[in-house]
Design a protein around this nucleic acid. Structure first.
Length: 491
RNA sequence: GGGCCGUUAGCUCAAUUGGCAGAGCAACUGACUCUUAAUCAGUAGGUUGGAGGUUCGAUUCCUCCACGGCUCACCA
């Protein structure tokens, strides 16, 4: 290892000895590698002869096939590759000496003319080679590449150089986010940024990360949701707001959980959760169509169609997917729900209120079947301390979750805007907290004060950007759509 | 946190019953002015993740530890 490195350090010395600046500050290219491929990829050998006199292009060397007094280089940039032909009689002596000192991984600029080789490959005939930067560490082997997932996550920079499909995933992620922003901006939304450091970690049921501010000697939490600040802004009259940001939950890591992840939350005044169901369909249809070119995606060998959304109440979903026969009426009966959970060997807390049991039953019975886009609506009140009660059934709230590919992608509700009711809900969460539920909601006095000034009827929604990206890139792990997933420290 | 599996050269992988740790690519030296995983000849590269143990002898068997993967639980 040290040998490989020291050889390359010596080569850099030799390059300097040729009078070449080892670390120049710029390279003025006329074309990027993808532009070369796009503009000239379709041209014939004859057409190339009458093309532009010279082009300048820069990239990283990923292949080198020398032939004594000539050689072929493959250079890559922005996910595309182009071949360079370095020929002694076409180059200044110094540039050919430089060519002989190049290694895989080095960054160079090439000025030359385009032609096709005998085998028809588009190639830059180098007239001038500029050295841009040295690679001291060797890239992974050309044929098998880098497959060790641990190194791929830890050294994402190498992963991105050698695995072009990884680049494609993150390009797509960026497109998804861009389309979402465009959709919301066009719908009259206002993008905002709210604090990441919270004195009360609220807006979701989750364990927060703790930190501390020295100057104020104050304990702080990293936010677990965007919700409560965005609703304060609704109180303030920003009637359509969204934030696209990182949130942090101090919980387990799995194929669909990373401790920090990206959430979109948006709030719309004078609307309810049914309005958001309609809007979510429209949003996802548009994003999937634009990013994927079709409303139908393939995820884990299954076709998922974003042009057709199903809507089921949570109770209906339990009835539909339960392996044991149940009726809607049974799901309202605590004894029957508990009996069914026992029969299914599902884990649940026997002291928990009936709403939580219904939630457990849903998870046990229905979630994995929800592959096609499905809205599950009307959740038990106990699971939803910030949602508005359904007037026709006070045991339920106006809430929905969207499931796709067996994953929860979105969560939305008609926002509770009654400060008295909100205080009571927080108080019952506090009781759960005292009973040992670390994820129960904390009291947020300022939020109640905000509601006390009056909040219009409002609907709000959160969409997990990482999971949406997993679906659209056919990724089996959330870590494949996060550039730098959390890992233990090395050594 | 539980269970299962993995860790050998820069990368991808071998190594029989416990018996001298190997290959391909990358690297180095040489030949070669149209190659496509270029080819040919040669060279070098290792505390087998770490620490103990069993044994004449451990990559191989045992224990512990570190890191990772899958999976279950929790969660979005």
């Amino acid at each position: 290892m040290e040998q490989l490195e020291s050889i390359r350090v010596q080569k850099l010395q030799q390059i300097r000895a040729l009078g070449i600046d080892a670390y120049p500050t710029e390279y003025r290219y006329t074309h990027t590698v993808p532009q070369v491929v796009e503009q000239f990829g379709g041209k014939t050998a004859e057409e190339l002869e009458h093309g532009p006199a010279t082009i300048r292009v820069a990239g990283r060397i990923v292949a080198n096939r020398p032939f004594g007094k000539a050689g072929f280089l493959g250079i890559t940039d922005a996910g595309e590759k182009v071949q360079v032909y370095a020929k002694k009689d076409q180059l200044a002596e110094r540039d050919f000496q430089l060519y002989l000192l190049l290694d895989l991984g080095d960054l160079i600029g090439v000025e030359g003319t385009l032609f096709r080789t005998r085998t028809g490959e588009l190639t830059v005939l180098a007239k001038q080679i500029s050295f841009l930067a040295k690679s001291f560490l060797p890239l992974p082997e050309k044929w098998h590449g880098l497959t060790d997932v641990e190194i791929r996550y830890r050294r994402r920079y190498v992963d991105l150089v050698v695995n072009p499909e990884v680049r494609g995933v993150f390009v797509k992620r960026s497109l998804i986010i861009r389309e979402i922003r465009r959709f919301l901006d066009d719908a009259g939304y206002f993008e905002v940024e709210t604090p990441v450091l919270h004195t009360v970690a609220g807006g979701a049921l989750a364990k927060p990360f703790r930190t501390h501010h020295n100057a104020l000697d104050m304990p702080l939490y990293l936010r677990i949701a965007l919700e409560l600040h965005l609703k304060r802004l609704i109180v303030g009259g920003l009637n359509r707001v969204y934030e696209l940001g990182r949130i942090f939950r101090n919980e387990g890591i799995s194929w669909k959980h990373n401790p920090e992840f990206t959430m979109l939350e948006f709030y719309q005044a004078y609307s309810n959760y049914e309005d958001l169901m309609d809007m979510t369909e429209e949003l996802l249809k548009k994003v999937v169509q634009t990013v994927n070119g079709s409303p139908v995606i393939t995820y884990d060998e299954q076709q998922i169609d974003f042009s057709r959304f199903t809507r089921l109440s949570m109770r209906e979903a339990i009835v539909k997917f339960s392996p044991e026969p149940v009726t809607i009426e049974d799901v309202k009966d605590r004894a029957k729900v508990e009996a069914l959970l026992k029969k299914l060997h599902a884990e649940y807390d026997p002291k928990a209120p009936v709403g939580n049991l219904v939630g457990s039953l849903f998870d046990a019975v229905a979630e994995k079947h929800l592959v096609q886009p499905t809205f599950i609506y009307d959740h038990p009140i106990e699971l939803s301390p910030l949602s508005k009660i359904k007037t026709s059934d006070p045991s339920l709230v106006e809430r929905f979750e969207l499931y796709v590919g067996g994953m929860e992608i979105a969560n939305a509700y008609s926002e509770l805007n009654d400060p008295v009711d909100q205080r009571e809900r927080f108080e019952s969460q506090l009781k759960a907290r005292e009973g040992g539920d670390e994820e129960a909601h904390q009291m947020d006095e300022d939020y109640i004060r905000a509601l006390s000034y009056g909040m219009p009827p409002t609907a709000g929604e959160g969409i997990g950007i990482d999971r949406l990206t997993m679906l659209l890139t056919n990724s089996k792990s959330i870590r494949d759509v996060i550039l730098f997933p959390l890992m233990r420290a090395e050594e």
